[in-house]
């Protein structure tokens, strides 16, 4: 069973008298453990597709299933419950809660999921260790670099053990080195946890990490295929030595 299935999904935005079709008749499956890039130029519908996959919005038509459950018409709170339990998000602008420490940010989704204190402590510690930030657990976002903040966001997205992590331009605001590290961490955690990752990007270096690439143009899928990492890409680099964090997660 796919983690997420979209069948004929269409989304249209109406602004005043202007109607813009963001997505048109999208049909695709994301399987367990996939590491998939959604690529396309600006305005191609990448973000809208991620928002619909993440139940942040509802399609105008079509069906979305998550782990076999039709989630197309769920109410706002039902969608919130679904996001809380099954979907992790990584945003372009790091999107941490500024008043909470790195530890507390990662812990937040676990609190929302009523995970008990011991288990929370174990998971948060392991995840921060996995993203190489165990020593900065008590720092607030404004005391962390952009790359570190995004690594905290990755840890937070994985904390509730979602079946799907959605990342919208996760490296867009990072320099080359930090972007590479973030992608390496995402890739490693995808392999270790089996959680499906779908990330939107138009950076070819980021795309090179993906095992599957879905290309969008004008709200339609124009290509969907498997790729192997290119020899010159970030993904081909040996990240085992200099990638922050390298522990394996005991709860995976």
């Amino acid at each position: 069973m796919p983690v997420i299935r979209l069948e004929g999904v269409t989304k249209t935005y109406i602004t005043g008298e202007v109607t813009a079709t963001a997505l048109s008749q999208i049909t695709l499956d994301i399987e367990v453990g996939e590491f998939t890039a959604i690529v396309g130029p600006s305005g191609s519908g990448k973000t809208t597709l991620l928002q619909l996959m993440g139940c942040l919005d509802r399609p105008d038509s079509g069906v979305i299933q998550i782990n076999g459950r039709d989630v197309t018409r769920l109410e706002a709170d039902q969608r919130a419950d679904l996001r809380r339990e099954q979907i992790g998000f990584i945003f372009q602008f790091f999107a941490l809660i500024p008043v909470l420490s790195a530890y507390e940010n990662v812990e937040l989704p676990l609190l929302l999921n009523d995970v008990d204190a011991d288990e929370r402590r174990r998971r948060v510690t392991e995840l921060l260790d996995a993203v190489g930030l165990a020593d900065k657990a008590n720092r607030r976002p404004d005391q962390l670099s952009g790359g570190e903040q995004q690594r905290v966001a990755i840890a937070r997205a994985l904390a509730p053990r979602p079946s799907l992590v959605l990342a919208d331009e996760p490296t867009a605001n990072l320099d080359t080195e930090n972007g590479r590290q973030v992608m390496q961490i995402m890739q490693r955690l995808n392999e270790q946890t089996g959680t499906a990752f779908v990330f939107a990007t138009h950076d070819p270096r980021v795309v090179s990490f993906a095992r599957r690439v879905i290309r969008l143009r004008d709200g339609r899928v124009v290509d969907d295929g498997v790729q192997v990492p290119e020899a010159t890409s970030w993904a081909a680099d040996d990240y085992g030595m200099d990638s922050p964090g390298s522990c394996s997660l005991s709860f995976c």
Binding site: D77, A95, P109, L112, R156
Partner: peptide
């Protein structure tokens, strides 16, 4: 607003 969006994305219900 942005943080409210993040919290909502994390699964915080409107009542919360």
């Amino acid at each position: 607003v942005r943080e409210i969006g993040i919290l909502s994305a994390l699964g915080m219900r409107s009542a919360q």
